[in-house]
Amino acid sequence: MVTETLTVMDPAGLKAIGAGLAVGLTGIASALAEKDIGSAAIGAMAENESLFGKGLILTVIPETIVIFGLVVSLLIIQ
């Protein structure tokens, strides 16, 4: 007698993987974008300290990418 075993992927697990990817990949993307902006901001600040505020704001702008990723992952998990 032949027995066949069926493996079915748990939808909850797939959702978790999707959510993880959403946060992980957007995190990498933010990091890449912030790397150059951050070093440029430090360069400008080394010459002119009053640029600290502007530099800080510009550096965290790409942070929105990972926030979107986080939102999407929360939506997936729900």
């Binding site: 400008a44 080394a46 010459e47 002119n48």
Partner: peptide, 15 residues
């Protein structure tokens, strides 16, 4: 590190 150097040089140019 082009971003750092060019930003710094631009700040120097403004002077």
């Amino acid at each position: 590190n082009y971003a750092y150097t060019t930003a710094r040089v631009r700040a120097m140019k403004s002077k």
